[in-house]
C-alpha cells in the first residue's frame, strides 16, 4: 500500500517556524509500524529527520509522538490502525506542551523535573531484615498498575491542565508517586502526599481522562490520581 506521511518538522538553526513536510512511501505493509515508516523516511529519503527511539518494542518509552492527533508510541502504532484502503495518510507531530528541540524531539527537562519532585525512589531508613522486606500479594496488588509506567510522557503531554500550566506536576509524576505512596514497605508516603497536596499537585487534575486514553501501558491513570486525592483527603 501507499502511505503519505505528513510530518511536523522544525530545525531551529534553519527554519523560522515549524512546517509540514510530506513523504510518500510505497510498498508499505499493513502491519508496518509508524516507526518503520519514520525509519524509511530517514534512511531512504531525508536523513535530517530527527526523532527519538531506542528499544522499538514499547518498553523504553522513547518514541511517544502525536500520531493522527493521538499520543501514541510510534513503535506500537500499526499502519492498519489508521489506513484501511490501499492508499492513505498518516500525520505525525511532536507531543504537545513541551518545547520542540528538533522535528519530533521535545525537551523533556520539565517532565523529569516534575518526576524528581515526587521522590520516585524507595525510602525506608529502618535496618533491612536479613533476607528481604516482605510484602503480601494483596499489598503488592494495590500499586500494581503504577509500576507499569515507562515514563514516555504520552499522558502528561495529552493533559490540557499541563498544556495550560506546565508547573502542574502532571499525570506521570503522580503515577510514579502512587507507586511508592501505596507501597507497604515505603515510609515517605506523607512527604509525597504533602507535595501532591499543593496547588500544582493532584488538584490541577480535572478528571479529563486524556491521560488514561493516551497511556500505551493501559494504566488507569485518572483512577490512580483519584486514589491519591482520596488519600490526601484522609490525612
Amino acid at each position: 500500500m501507499e502511505i503519505t506521511l505528513r510530518i511536523r518538522r522544525y530545525n531551529p538553526e534553519v527554519d523560522e517556524k515549524p512546517y509540514w513536510a510530506e513523504y510518500t512511501l510505497e510498498n508499505v505493509e499493513r502491519t508496518d509500524r509508524v516507526l518503520d515508516l519514520l525509519h524509511r523516511v530517514k534512511w531512504e529519503i531525508d536523513g535530517t529527520l530527527s526523532f527519538r527511539r531506542s528499544c522499538a518494542h514499547g518498553v523504553c518509552g522513547s518514541d511517544a509522538m502525536r500520531i493522527n492527533g493521538m499520543n501514541l508510541l510510534a513503535c506500537k502504532a500499526l499502519v492498519k490502525d489508521f489506513v484501511k484502503g490501499a492508499k492513505g495518510r498518516i500525520q505525525v507531530e511532536p507531543i504537545l506542551g513541551l518545547p520542540v528541540i528538533k522535528d519530533l524531539i521535545v525537551d523533556m527537562d520539565t517532565f523529569f523535573e516534575h518526576y524528581r519532585t515526587v521522590m520516585p525512589y524507595f525510602i525506608n531508613d529502618e535496618e533491612p531484615p536479613e533476607r528481604e522486606r516482605l510484602q503480601s500479594p494483596e499489598e503488592r496488588a494495590i500499586f500494581d498498575e503504577s509500576t507499569k509506567c515507562i515514563l514516555c510522557a504520552a499522558c502528561t503531554t495529552s493533559c490540557p491542565s499541563f498544556w495550560a500550566n506546565e508547573t502542574y506536576l502532571g499525570p506521570a509524576a503522580i503515577v510514579q508517586a502512587h507507586r511508592f505512596i501505596f507501597d507497604s514497605r515505603d515510609q515517605a508516603a506523607s512527604e509525597r502526599l504533602a507535595i501532591l497536596s499543593e496547588e500544582n499537585g493532584v488538584w490541577r487534575c480535572r478528571t479529563i481522562y486524556n491521560c488514561t486514553m493516551a497511556c500505551p501501558r493501559e494504566i488507569p491513570i485518572t483512577q490512580l490520581i483519584a486514589e491519591v486525592k482520596k488519600e490526601i483527603g484522609r490525612r
Binding site: I123, D125, Q187, A188, S190, E191, L193, A194, I195, S197, E198, E199, G201, W203, K229, I232, G233, R235
Partner: peptide
C-alpha cells in the same frame, strides 16, 4: 525522613467543596 510534612489544606478543602 524527618519532620511533619505540611499539607495544603486549603486546596484539599476547595476540591471537596
Amino acid at each position: 525522613m524527618t519532620g511533619t510534612p505540611s499539607y495544603n489544606r486549603f486546596e484539599t478543602l476547595a476540591w471537596r467543596y
